[in-house]
Simulated scan of single mutants.
Amino acid sequence: MHDFTQRFLFDDTDVRGELADLQGSYAEVLAKHPYPEPVAQLLGEMLTAASLLIGTLKFDGLLILQARSSGAVPLLMVECSSEREVRGIARYHAEQIPAGAGLRELMPEGVLAMTVDPAQGRRYQGIVALDGATLAQCLSNYFASSEQLPTRFWLNADGRRARGLLLQQLPADRLKDPEARAASWEHLITLADTLTAEELLGLDNETLLHRLYHQEAVRLFEPYPLHFRCSCSRERSANALTSLGQEDAQRLLEEQGGTVVVDCQFCNQRYVFDASDIAQLFAGGGIEGPSATRH
Rank of each mutant, 00 (worst) to 15 (best):
E206N: 09
G44I: 02
I97P: 04
L252C: 06
Q246S: 10
G71I: 00
G61W: 15
N156Q: 14
Q250W: 13
A144H: 11
D12V: 09
R84D: 08
T134Y: 01
T134P: 13
G17I: 08
R84I: 01
S81D: 07
T115F: 02
N205Q: 09
A172D: 11
L244N: 07
L53W: 06
H214M: 07
T293P: 04
R152E: 15
F228N: 06
W185S: 10
D193Q: 15
L220K: 05
P38R: 02
W154L: 14
C267T: 04
H295F: 11
P36K: 05
L106R: 01
Q137A: 15
M1G: 14
R236Q: 11
Y224D: 09
P98I: 07
A67G: 08
E147R: 14
R251L: 05
Q269V: 11
S145L: 10
A275F: 03
E79G: 13
E288G: 07
F266L: 15
A172P: 12
Q96I: 03
Y26P: 01
T196D: 06
L22W: 03
A192W: 04
Y124F: 15
I64P: 01
G55H: 10
L43P: 09
Q265P: 10
L103E: 02
R123C: 02
L106H: 03
R234Q: 05
E254K: 11
I127E: 15
S237E: 08
T5L: 02
E199I: 02
P98K: 09
L200T: 05
Y142G: 11
H187R: 13
D21N: 10
E37V: 14
I89Q: 15
H210P: 01
P98H: 12
N239L: 15
R91A: 14
Q66E: 12
T207I: 10
A40H: 14
A144R: 11
D60F: 15
L209I: 08
F10M: 07
D158Y: 07
Y26C: 01
H2E: 14
E79P: 02
E198D: 15
A20V: 10
V73W: 00
A94M: 06
P178C: 11
L65S: 06
V116F: 10
A279F: 05
L135S: 07
L209A: 01
D14L: 01
T115W: 00
A119C: 13
L195K: 13
S25W: 00
Q215R: 08
G102C: 02
F221R: 10
I89T: 14
Y26I: 00
I54A: 10
S25T: 08
A136Q: 04
Q256E: 08
L19P: 00
E18K: 06
A133P: 01
R68M: 12
S237Q: 10
S70P: 00
R16E: 15
A275H: 07
Q66N: 08
